[in-house]
Amino acid sequence: MKPAPFDYRRPGSIAEAVQILAGEPNAKVLAGGQSLVPLLSMRLAAPAMLVDINAIPGLDAIEVEDGGVRIGALARHAAVLASPDVRRVQPLVPMALAHVAHATIRNRGTTVGSLIHADAAAEMPVVLSLLGGSVDVDGPSGRRTIPASELYVGPLESSLHHDEIAVSAFFPALAPGAGVAFQELARRHGDYALVGAAALVEGESVEVGYLSVSDVPTVVDLSGVDDADLGEAALAQLEPADDIHATAAYRAQLVRVLTGKVVRSAREWADQHAEGAR
């Protein structure tokens, strides 16, 4: 379990990092390394070069902006989880982060790194998708913003170009009167979820995002669906699959159970906080 040989660079600026990436098509960006390093050790990935962005100043910022919160590429899960600003502006983020792996992994792993790793079993891509957030990336032709709806193109595949670096993610604020909830079921505490669901309710609008039931993070619009039919309505748009931990039928059952629960719980959240606001 030792990685194959690779070159290692540690640029001091984003511009330098972009330049290095442009010169090596088979390079990978190293931020927290919590997914990448195990892949290297098991030789499931063998990039020619690692571009370690940890020395680039300013990338760990967590800032409240108009309409949401921006999380820098080097902000660790633990810092995001602990941030009162994030909790106030978009409470779904810490709700989901509490389910991301274990404390030691959250201390090192980055939220933006998890978004770009694009694992459909991970929590944060679903949250970004459900909230309609975005990721800012820098590349040779400058900075661009990729909306979540265009970020996830396949299993473990994002729409970033190889010479682009994600510099931050933007999570929109929770609108007044709206509510959110997150729940998942995992075999063990901290494992990848068998199924997870995040809900966003805002007036008549009901949306639920799912992890581990399709190749990419999937958001389903359940507005106008009777409460009793929520699960089945969601399943019509999902494709749960078998793996060694659960059958597709069991995953479907968890979708039924979790959908009702998260929608109910998001509404309760909205009610409680609406009362608090008065």
Binding site: M42, R187, R188, H189, G190, D191, I244, H245
Partner: peptide
């Protein structure tokens, strides 16, 4: 031990071989 029909062990890591944590 999740062997498939071809004799590959599908869960040869602590990610997929579920040893209980203290939480279990």
């Amino acid at each position: 031990m999740a062997y498939d029909e071809s004799g590959q062990l599908l869960n040869a890591s602590f990610m997929d071989f579920l040893m209980p944590y203290v939480t279990e």
